[in-house]
Computed example of a mutant assay.
Amino acid sequence: MTLPSFGPPTNWIEVPGANDRRDVENFLGRVRKMDESAAVRIVDTGGALRFWARTPFGPLGTRVVVGSASAPDQIVLAHALALNPDTDGRIDLGYLMPSAWQGMLPPPGGFVQIELVGAQEILDLARRGRDVAADESGPLGVAPSLLDQDVISINPDAAGGATGGDDGGEGDAGEAAATAVKMHTVFALTGLGFVPSRAGTAPAGEKVRVSVRGPWVRLDGRFGSVYHRPESLPLNVVR
């Protein structure tokens, strides 16, 4: 009996590199471990795909790989996405779930680097935070007071001011006034595996970059980035 052919997928992505597919699978595995019902947003930036997920702590995490897509912006559920290409190299996304995504994405560029923090310091903060959470968390999970705690405070004068934007231009030091990195952002960065480590130790000299644009704070690890914007501020895109 010949099975009917349903044709090529309607909603698809292409990630031609095997290493890139493994990287995305690792990212998706981390996302699923944090939240089995998490939504993943896939944005085609022209030659690259940016995979987004919101962590249970609040900040957004993103991983970028070389690839293309059938549409510039598609939303699926993490548990339903498997990176198994067909004979044409396309990965079928199945049904899209646009209603599963809540909130806005950060602006695509214009971030200003204000500090480089040692990766080991980030790992140590996450470890101490987990220890406190284990002792003080209740039946509803990690206490909000712990997640909202400022764990790194950056004074742009002490840090030497802004060192340039990610769009190749000069940074605006006015963007960098009194920036604080909160514990939930540290948890998101380490929980998604964006800081390389072996047995809790980062490679010597490894750094995490802290950048800002308006109310957004971004942390860049070697394997990905996390973004946070205080929810109390108006939800309009900075352009």
Rank of each mutant, 00 (worst) to 15 (best):
residue 1 M to E: 06
residue 5 S to A: 11
residue 6 F to S: 03
residue 6 F to E: 03
residue 9 P to H: 11
residue 13 I to F: 02
residue 13 I to R: 01
residue 14 E to I: 05
residue 16 P to S: 03
residue 17 G to N: 14
residue 17 G to C: 08
residue 19 N to Y: 14
residue 21 R to F: 07
residue 21 R to M: 04
residue 22 R to S: 07
residue 24 V to P: 01
residue 25 E to K: 11
residue 25 E to H: 09
residue 29 G to V: 05
residue 29 G to N: 12
residue 30 R to G: 00
residue 30 R to E: 05
residue 31 V to R: 04
residue 32 R to W: 05
residue 32 R to I: 09
residue 34 M to Q: 15
residue 34 M to C: 02
residue 35 D to Q: 14
residue 37 S to C: 05
residue 39 A to S: 12
residue 41 R to Q: 03
residue 44 D to N: 13
residue 45 T to I: 07
residue 47 G to H: 13
residue 48 A to F: 12
residue 49 L to I: 05
residue 50 R to N: 08
residue 50 R to P: 01
residue 52 W to D: 01
residue 52 W to L: 03
residue 55 T to F: 06
residue 55 T to A: 06
residue 55 T to M: 05
residue 56 P to W: 09
residue 66 V to H: 13
residue 72 P to Q: 08
residue 74 Q to I: 01
residue 76 V to W: 04
residue 80 A to K: 13
residue 83 L to A: 00
residue 85 P to K: 10
residue 85 P to S: 07
residue 88 D to L: 13
residue 90 R to P: 04
residue 90 R to S: 02
residue 91 I to T: 02
residue 92 D to P: 11
residue 94 G to M: 10
residue 95 Y to L: 05
residue 96 L to K: 04
residue 96 L to S: 00
residue 97 M to I: 01
residue 97 M to H: 14
residue 98 P to Y: 10
residue 101 W to S: 01
residue 102 Q to H: 10
residue 106 P to F: 05
residue 108 P to Q: 09
residue 108 P to I: 02
residue 115 E to D: 10
residue 116 L to G: 02
residue 122 I to W: 03
residue 125 L to Q: 07
residue 126 A to P: 00
residue 128 R to Q: 09
residue 129 G to M: 06
residue 130 R to Q: 07
residue 130 R to C: 00
residue 131 D to A: 10
residue 132 V to R: 13
residue 134 A to C: 07
residue 136 E to T: 08
residue 137 S to P: 08
residue 139 P to I: 08
residue 140 L to F: 12
residue 140 L to E: 12
residue 142 V to Y: 04
residue 143 A to D: 13
residue 144 P to L: 04
residue 145 S to N: 07
residue 146 L to D: 03
residue 147 L to Q: 06
residue 147 L to R: 09
residue 148 D to I: 05
residue 148 D to R: 15
residue 151 V to T: 07
residue 153 S to L: 13
residue 156 P to W: 15
residue 157 D to P: 00
residue 159 A to T: 04
residue 160 G to K: 11
residue 160 G to E: 12
residue 161 G to I: 08
residue 165 G to R: 15
residue 166 D to V: 01
residue 166 D to R: 09
residue 168 G to R: 09
residue 168 G to F: 07
residue 169 G to L: 10
residue 169 G to C: 04
residue 175 E to A: 06
residue 179 T to C: 08
residue 180 A to S: 13
residue 182 K to V: 05
residue 182 K to W: 09
residue 182 K to I: 03
residue 183 M to H: 07
residue 186 V to M: 06
residue 187 F to S: 00
residue 187 F to C: 00
residue 188 A to S: 15
residue 188 A to D: 02
residue 192 L to P: 04
residue 200 G to E: 06
residue 200 G to V: 11
residue 201 T to I: 15
residue 202 A to S: 10
residue 206 E to F: 07
residue 209 R to G: 01
residue 210 V to Q: 02
residue 212 V to T: 15
residue 212 V to S: 02
residue 213 R to A: 05
residue 217 V to L: 13
residue 221 G to A: 06
residue 221 G to C: 05
residue 222 R to Q: 11
residue 223 F to C: 01
residue 223 F to G: 00
residue 228 H to G: 02
residue 228 H to S: 08
residue 229 R to D: 00
residue 230 P to K: 10
residue 231 E to P: 03
residue 232 S to H: 13
residue 232 S to E: 12
residue 232 S to N: 12
residue 233 L to F: 14
residue 234 P to I: 07
residue 236 N to A: 11
residue 237 V to L: 14
residue 237 V to F: 09
